[in-house]
Amino acid sequence: MDATNIQTEQAESTDIQQDVLTFLDAQTKRSWGPEADLFAAGGLSSLFAMQLVVFLEKTYGIAIRGKDLRLDNFRTVVNMVALVERLRGDR
């Protein structure tokens, strides 16, 4: 993998991260950090996790099924970015 590909992947990860943070901010009316535990911080429920699933599926054209529906995949924005990239085959 060359430097251009690495830079492109990093830019795409940053874009996904920003998209998810924007969605979270709009839905929860508060700001989140990429590594904040969304569920331990309180206020977010398993129902909200399903909203995140729908958002990620529609936004990135992926299907989140079976073992990928674990709460840990949605606990932080960093985890969600990794999930999206894995399901898209980015990494």
Rank of each mutant, 00 (worst) to 15 (best):
K29D: 15
G43R: 04
T4K: 14
L87N: 09
L83V: 14
I62N: 02
F39L: 14
T76A: 02
V77M: 02
Q7C: 04
P34M: 09
G61H: 13
L21I: 15
T14F: 13
K29L: 10
L38W: 06
T59M: 00
A41P: 02
F55D: 02
I64M: 03
I16K: 07
A82S: 12
D37F: 11
L87W: 11
L71W: 15
F39P: 01
S45E: 07
F23S: 01
D25A: 13
F55P: 08
L38N: 07
I6W: 01
K58G: 08
R86N: 14
A49G: 10
D2M: 02
M80S: 11
T8S: 05
A3E: 13
M1R: 11
G89K: 05
D25L: 00
R88T: 09
I6A: 08
E85Y: 07
L24V: 05
V20P: 04
D2S: 11
R88M: 08
D68Y: 14
N79A: 13
A36C: 03
L69W: 12
R88L: 15
D68C: 04
A40M: 02
E85I: 00
S46R: 09
R91M: 13
M50Q: 12
Q7K: 10
Q17G: 14
F39W: 11
V20W: 07
G89H: 08
R65Y: 11
T28F: 12
M50V: 15
E9A: 08
E9F: 10
Q27K: 10
A36H: 14
L83F: 07
A82C: 05
R86T: 15
F55V: 04
F74C: 02
F74N: 03
A40L: 06
Q7A: 09
P34R: 08
D15I: 01
E12K: 05
G89Q: 00
N5G: 11
N79D: 08
N73H: 13
A26F: 04
Y60T: 05
A26V: 03
M50T: 15
F23K: 03
I6P: 00
I6Y: 12
L24E: 07
A63P: 00
K67H: 05
T22P: 04
V20I: 15
G61W: 03
D25I: 10
L69C: 04
S13P: 07
T14E: 10
F74P: 02
D72A: 08
